[in-house]
Design a protein around this nucleic acid. Sequence first.
RNA 1: GGAGAGGUGUCUGAGUGGUCGAAAGAGCACGCCUGGAAAGUGUGUAUACGCCAAAAGUGUAUCGAGGGUUCGAAUCCCUCCCUCUCCGCCA
Length: 423
Amino acid sequence: MLQVSYIRDNREKVLERLAVKNFKQPNLVDEIIQLDERRRLTQNQMDGVSAQANAAAKQIGELMRAGKKEEAEALKATTGAFKGEVQTLNEQLSSLEEELNQKIVLLPNLPHISVPQGSTPEENEVVSDNGSKPQLPANALPHWELAAKYNLIDFELGVKITGAGFPVYKGKGAKLQRALISFFLDEAEKAGYSEVMLPLLVNEASGFGTGQLPDKEGQMYYIGEDKLYLIPTAEVPITNLYRDVILKADELPVRNCGYTPCFRREAGSYGAHVRGLNRLHQFDKVEIVQVVHPDSSYDVIEQMSEHVQGLLQKLGLPYRVLRLCGGDMGFTAALTYDMETWSAAQQRWLEVSSVSNFETFQSNRLKLRFRNAEGKTQLAHTLNGSALALPRIVATLLENNQTEKGIKIPEVLVPYTKFEWID
RNA sequence: GGAGAGGUGUCUGAGUGGUCGAAAGAGCACGCCUGGAAAGUGUGUAUACGCCAAAAGUGUAUCGAGGGUUCGAAUCCCUCCCUCUCCGCCA
């Protein structure tokens, strides 16, 4: 959520930046500015009347104590008008605030200056392209066939007990999941992130805090009876740990990592691109989150990007880094890097991580502040990234490492899997 | 799920209709004291939104949340949320 005061003071810049995101309703900005003006005017009036009413009430109290009953009664008679006036103004103020709030949550975050203009994934900027694409033999199999061949993942069983998009991992397939989770958590810990284990269901306030609500409720599973949402990512519970918090300056940066399953309804996509592990309703992910001083967030996003790249390098997976263009970026982000691994058997790139700087967009909703050098409260910057999401890592790992004698496990994982081959 | 008790500032905790944004203590910050520290001592110590060019200042709101009664609510009433104790259930 953008700050009203910022919009008020930077109308032109806001419009210019929104255009990079291809925002469709630029007139919303002026509506917000006007609503804000009316809001301030109304509050000013109401405060004035309240001040008079308070002064009168105080005086009545003093008269009562002094025993001057008649004078008190006489004053009482004059205060009736205030009450009605305050009530009217208060109703106006509430409805203005509500209207303002409804509109301001429709504005996406402003993209950083480095974000390229564009509206489709093809217009994302390739920042780096590391690792050579492996040449697989002509009879190389896609991961869903490898998963079946080596009895690692049973998609049909998942359909039976739950539905499509809920795979069952078996044997070495299950162990590989566990190994990757432990490996990612250990690496995050080494990089200074402290681990948290979190609820998988969150309330509405948390969904609002990180920006999933009110916009994207259709993408989350919802338990209506208890008004709880299944988390689409650990970003939601981790970042919301700091909702309504004022941090001391020396508590920054906050670094947390956490493993959780993630649940996404992802309605309405079918075909080869969602085959196998490519797109699931439930998947596992290790997430890294930072809360930082606004001056450092763009350095920190580079660090986080490097951390994620380090994981891919250690796993020996070819990958590239994209800087998302305005149109392909999420609603809440100011800058996003996507990391994609090359799936040799499918001959396409698979997104395995997304690292974003949200600047104050989330912290404004979360009321996540810190006390700055002047001792004043200031919104912190939040960032997060997947480090990493498992399914597509597993997909590329299986595909790229297939050999005639089986699938070779990357060396860094062997201490975790305790086997070197899937065969 | 049933019965009872309770939710006050960073914390403990007073406060049952007016002088209460809120006693007192602790903590924290700064100063004095000290060779240095402790002790002692003094001062300060919530957030948001307005007004003001801004600082200073000042107005309003906030004592779990939302409504109500009243000239006036932390205090009385209603609804909801949460915590604790006991019972029930249970990995």
